[in-house]
Design a binder for these strands. Structure first.
Lengths: 176, 176
DNA sequence: CCGCACTGGTTCAGTGAACGAACCAAATGA
DNA sequence: TCATTTGGTTCGTTCACTGAACCAGTGCGG
């Protein structure tokens, strides 16, 4: 079974959501997918996750319709691409990330800002642009790395280096 | 250690948040706390969670400053009350819950609506009142049970019965 | 003041999941 | 043809979750 741990008997939509994305690593995989990561190897390099667990989680996410597995754009391998259902997980990732940023700040400063692509203004915790006031959909978000990602204790794998530049959410990363 | 599973090396605020609330059961405990559950026994009855795990999670949440353990209002036992840091988890619980409601609807209808207490209008996925447009803080949310909670397959424990009536978020439940 | 029930735990054996290293196979491409 | 890239699978060890049983402090009735 793809979801070996269930919250049976919980007559609750939060529990249903957690059955899909509540397992260890799953939401970090979705976060990376929102950031543009698409290849098995890239998830693995960026997350330091055991390969068996990654294979299991990717399979479960495809099974549940959050990701889709397509032929790789470069000819080799596959791409794991977010479906609309997966993109709708963005508010969850955003609120998690902003809660962590608020209560566990790095001494080096902010990790990442989320900005409204047109306005260049930050989003608030509810996903509203602090300049124009609109609720910003995932496709209109630009992720801007903060000072905490530039220090010497930053990760040096290719994915982390690609994520150290500002980039549009959902756009495939160009791994250098 | 209170958090036996860490995401070490993840230079990311979402990972830090998941270290605190990412373990199995933890977010369901926070959800219940937002709904007004405060007693060990009530969490246990409502969640069907092993007592050892519940004790571990409550201890970890107190340790991390999400809950506070205070003398029970009724004279006996303790109350686990959300801190401000814990109340700030509401956007996470809300977005999880609404994602689950959107993609895993019950055939009996909606489980719960979240409404703006003054307006009696529903919140959207970003926590804005669909009538007045404001971003609604947790304290101004009223939870209205939907048809899916009223059927014959609803849970019958005292906590579930108390939650089957509309109630204000954060206000202590009166268990009948 | 004694004993009982309520509350909030802890302990323990059995099971299942995560970890990390090694191995494997299909497909490109030199 | 053979090496490399990619995306896995296998397997032994470790660790966490489960469920049942046991335990201790506190109020309260008698």
């Amino acid at each position: 079974m793809a979801l070996p741990r269930e919250y049976t008997g919980q007559n609750c939509s939060a529990a249903r959501a957690l059955e899909v994305v509540g397992e260890r690593w799953t939401l970090l995989i979705v976060r990376d997918a929102l950031y543009g990561v698409r290849r098995f190897t890239d998830f693995q390099a960026h997350l330091d996750i055991p390969r068996a667990v990654l294979a299991d989680r990717l399979g479960a996410l495809v099974e549940s319709g959050v990701l889709e597995r397509v032929r790789g754009a470069t000819g080799r391998g596959h791409d794991y691409v977010l479906t609309d259902k997966g993109i709708e997980l963005w508010p969850i990732v955003r609120s998690l990330s902003m809660w962590g940023e608020q209560f566990y700040p790095s001494d080096k400063g902010v990790h990442r800002f989320y900005t409204h692509t047109g306005c260049d203004a930050e989003l608030d915790v509810n996903g509203r642009c602090t300049k124009c006031g609109q609720s910003v959909p995932a496709a209109d978000v630009t992720v801007v790395p903060g000072p905490a990602l530039r220090g010497q204790n930053a990760r040096t794998d290719p994915v982390s280096r690609a994520l150290a530049a500002p980039h549009r959410l959902l756009e495939p990363l160009t791994i250098g």
